[in-house]
Amino acid sequence: MLTAILVMAGIAVAVGAVLGFAALRYKVEGDPLVEKIDAILPQTQCGQCGFPGCRPYAEAIAKGEADINLCPPGGEEGVKKLAELLGVEPKPLDESHGVQKPKSVAFIDESLCIGCTLCIQACPVDAILGAAKQMHTIIAAECTGCELCVAPCPVDCISMVPLKEDVGNWKWKYPVFKLKQVA
């Protein structure tokens, strides 16, 4: 009886020591969850989710304060990735926050621009170039298509132009592989 108890106790101590050592030896640094969520979000910084940017939304998701289906630019695919990361069921995009649109960039009609700088202040990624009373221009390569500059413009000179497929950004299509009969 005593031997059995001693043996069991001995095993417990030994295993405990190994586990304790492993916990110290293989410690994982920090909580990368927010980073991981933020990496999935499209970084449009459009605020359609109701948070002032992608990172605050990521933090809210990580804390469990926000749902995963509030990001229209990320689309269904983004929701799916978030669901996979967090181990929850994917759900359809919450349309009250907007619908997914084709990727666009803002375009300033330069003949109308009065140089009021309101759009420059609205741009979350500083992608509008210009100065007071100078015509403004969008740096198309930096524009995330968030549309936040459209509303502040007092002369409505900003429009969203959907990105068109051209030789430069064209992608090879998935080969059509029809095995089934077309009904």
Binding site: P42, Q43, Q45, G53, C54, V125, D126, K171, W172
Partner: peptide
């Protein structure tokens, strides 16, 4: 198809990273 899809995604990722940095 797979190659151009990977390139497109990498480009998207780069753009997102730039947007994050700029924000």
């Amino acid at each position: 198809f797979a190659k151009s899809e990977i390139w497109a995604r990498e480009k998207e990722k780069r753009l997102a990273d730039t947007a994050r940095d700029r924000h």
